[in-house]
Amino acid sequence: MNNPPTTEPVDHETEHYAHDVSNHVRGYLLVGATLLVCTGLTVFLSYVNFGSQKANIAVAMVLATFKAGLVAYIFMHLSAEKKLIYRVLVFTGIFVFALFWLTYLAWYDPITH
C-alpha cells in the first residue's frame, strides 16, 4: 500500500452513461404504465373477498411492495447503484423491520393472548 490510490475524478463513466440514457426512456415509460396498472389492480383486488381481511391486507401489501420495488429499482436507479448505497439501505431496512416487528412483539404476549 505504498502508493496511495488515486482519487482524481474520472469523467468517462458519466459520458458513457449519457449514451445509454436514451435507451432507458422506453423502459421508464413501461414501468410507469405497469405502476398505473398495478394501482388499478390494487383497487380492484381490495373489493374481492379473499376470505378474511388479513388476506386482503396481505394481497395489497404484496402489490404495494412490488410497486415500491419497481420505483426504487428503476426510477431511483438502484439497479445500477453502487454497493455503498446498498449497504446503507440494508441497515436501514433491518432497523425499520426491527421497529415494526419488535413493537408488534411487545404488544403480543403468548401468555396473555
Binding site: 419488535l102 412483539l105 411487545a106 404488544w107 403480543y108 404476549d109 403468548p110 401468555i111 396473555t112
Partner: peptide, 8 residues
C-alpha cells in the same frame, strides 16, 4: 411487556 420480548 410480553415475556418473549423481554427475553429477547
Amino acid at each position: 411487556m410480553g415475556t418473549v420480548v423481554s427475553a429477547f
